[in-house]
Design a protein around this nucleic acid. Structure first.
Lengths: 141, 141
DNA sequence: ATGTATGCAAAACATTTGCACCTGG
DNA sequence: CCAGGTGCAAATGTTTTGCATACAT
């Protein structure tokens, strides 16, 4: 039912768009950079251009289907937007990303914004580090 | 006393390094991108190369003198490291940046990391939005 | 058909690197 | 003097854009 999401976003249902949406929805790694997606599609035998991947991701972001993050590393990563905000733990050794949500932090953010007369439109919080035991949290991400 | 900071970091005290450190310490905007610094130095009549600015900033970062942030926008911004961690409010209309620190959030971050068996080496939290009244908070940043 | 999307190649940026020359200690 | 630093130009990596062709509706 990805195609309905595309239509809802006012985007024509094309092969590249469906393939990219499918990858974002079904890849074991929810956080992908443009080139990852490009290579995965090439490997899957698709005839796609990297420029198209960037164009589609940018359109998806504008349509709210996808969120663009700027983790360290000089490139953006894209993640399917499931409608629920969350923040990230990023393992700088393995690159593994785990999502989390904390109500207390969200509340404090709002409070801090209010104290500063600031209206938040979005926010990111990234904890960089490493998992002490990389076997435990495995189910997450 | 910037030169002592340089020596302490094991870096020769050279003109470009002192000029850049000086800019970072005295610019009204604490958060500068490499090209900002480069242009400011050119305007000040310095004969410096953009490559040098990048090299120096990278060395400063390695030495802990400076922190590199990846706000939205496809470029890094650098900030003098005053030793105290803080997070950022970024006005997406004016580009104005205000720093803040919240003990409750810091505590929750540690707790969340612990719950995930994760060791934090660093973290960033950025609230994007806009100041409701841009006259009020002016003293900050 | 017809406006939009795509592929390809080139361009635009941000950042890094090789190398000959210069400079600080 | 001499290791390390700098300027310049070229290289790299990421993302964007122009344009002719191909495709969805």
């Amino acid at each position: 039912m990805e195609s309905s999401d595309l239509k809802k976003a006012g985007l024509k249902v094309t092969l590249p768009r469906m393939k990219i949406l499918d990858l974002l929805a079904n890849s074991p790694d929810r956080h992908l950079k443009a080139e990852d997606i490009y290579k995965m599609l090439l490997d899957a035998g698709e005839d796609i251009a990297l420029a198209t991947v960037y164009r589609v991701l940018t359109q998806f972001e504008a349509a709210g289907l996808v969120t663009r993050h700027h983790f360290d590393g000089g490139h953006a990563v894209f993640e399917l937007n499931d409608g629920e905000h969350h923040d990230h733990l990023v393992d700088i050794r393995s690159g593994r990303v785990v999502e989390f949500y904390d109500e207390i932090i969200e509340q404090r953010q709002k409070e801090i914004a209010r104290e500063h007369g600031f209206t938040i439109t979005e926010h990111t919080m990234i904890l960089y580090g490493h998992f002490d035991d990389d076997k435990e949290d495995a189910g997450r991400d």
